[in-house]
Design a protein around this nucleic acid. Structure first.
Lengths: 224, 224
DNA sequence: ATATTTTTGATAGCATTACTATTATTTATA
DNA sequence: TATAAATAATAGTAATGCTATCAAAAATAT
């Protein structure tokens, strides 16, 4: 079975919707592969064009520059996690269980019966871990924010914060907890990999599983 | 009264120690001013050279590239916060009080009777909030880490994690808590400024004071 | 099936960036 | 005051980021 999903991403992110054409989808697909492989700083439209047998000019018709392409990918990721959380908490009534699903979604960012799309969610998650915050730590943030380019992030945090409040209605900082949960997940996965002395994740074990355990430990202390 | 401090930063960060010459100190001083003003992406050695009436080539004798200059600044910041924590917890015996001082140091990153040096710590802190993680989210991280370029960060986290354990010896993830505390401080200050819907910091009030309050609330729940 | 519009490819070009090299001049030190 | 070291001045090169133009191909409308 194959399900097709298309997220409505803010249209300021692109010049032409990459989801609507073959070339556009190729740009998305191979930009993920390439940024994952060589990193965002070395990545550029020239290299991508060669990789997909197209031209720089053609890619520039979809995205103004590589920064907005990255922001597009990160937006897709925010929508994706939001979608995952909604999908998996749909029939759950127990709030505590819901929160565990949130954590699981943030840490693994994948479904078992994975959807057939042109996006490799596992690579995309790794890009978000490695390069994600660069997408919103720019001097254009106020302008970009004013036209809604971070709406997907805010929506995701809102969804998580509501679940936090379900678990503990008296918790004073649900949004901060939610955004910290998102950022902490990615940070600790990053540290476990590259700077293990900044974490307590055992080096030999599966990082995802250990980070998930840790986050649940933190949440338990914070909310119960 | 003026006290001069000089931190021993990893010598792989620079080609020539900028603390040892007038030009070097000018590079540091004005790179902070300039990155703060125009952001790290638009900042380059050409512009800095013009600003300080020197030349690109001269700056390249101190730093291999702008990435290593940023990493130098961030290292200086890590050392600075570590220094602040040690200075202010020196005569304190109460562990809980010590942890509050840690939080205060991370949020304000400054002393009342500020030291006279060529570094504007308040601007530097803002750079760390805005650009800090870019310094360690690079594809060269393993190489840079292997020669000790993140030692100052690890030392800082170790200091904080020991205080965490003093407060609660049973807490399972002291390093993760410490690194999250560092990252969360900067993230929430950033969000409060630019993406307030990702926090619960009241928009009108003083962000530093509110973030400090919030972090203490989190720590209280986590450790007591 | 053919005309028309849209999308893509091919090519060129230009300003800026990131760096390196060379030599002259200034500054510090012996 | 001689010598060495640091800096300035200048030039240059390869790569990057981006724009423009026009032809070919593909999609769509008639």
């Amino acid at each position: 079975m194959s399900v097709k999903i298309k997220f409505d991403l803010n249209d300021g992110l692109y010049l032409k919707d990459p989801q609507d054409s073959k070339l556009g989808r190729k740009i998305i697909k191979f930009s993920i592969v390439m940024i994952y492989k060589i990193g965002f700083e070395s990545f550029n439209f020239k290299k991508l064009a060669i990789e997909i047998n197209s031209t720089e000019a053609s890619i520039y018709r979809y995205f103004e520059n590589k920064h907005l392409l990255l922001l597009y990918l990160v937006n897709w990721y925010w929508e994706w996690v939001n979608y995952l959380i909604n999908l998996n908490t749909m029939n759950i009534t127990d709030s505590k269980k819901k929160l565990e699903i949130v954590v699981h979604s943030l840490v693994f960012a994948t479904t078992d019966n994975s959807l057939v799309v042109f996006i490799d969610e596992s690579k995309l998650h790794k890009i978000v871990v490695f390069e994600g915050t660069k997408a919103y730590h720019t001097f254009e943030i106020d302008k970009e924010n004013s036209v809604g380019m971070f709406k997907s992030y805010k929506d995701l945090i809102e969804v998580i914060s509501l679940i936090v409040l379900e678990v503990n209605p008296d918790f004073k900082y649900p949004h901060a907890l939610a955004s910290n949960l998102f950022e902490m997940t990615n940070n600790q996965l990053f540290f476990a990999n590259y700077l293990p002395r900044l974490t307590d994740i055992p080096p030999k074990k599966n990082h995802e599983i250990e980070v998930e355990k840790m986050l649940n430990y933190f949440l338990c202390k914070l909310l119960f």
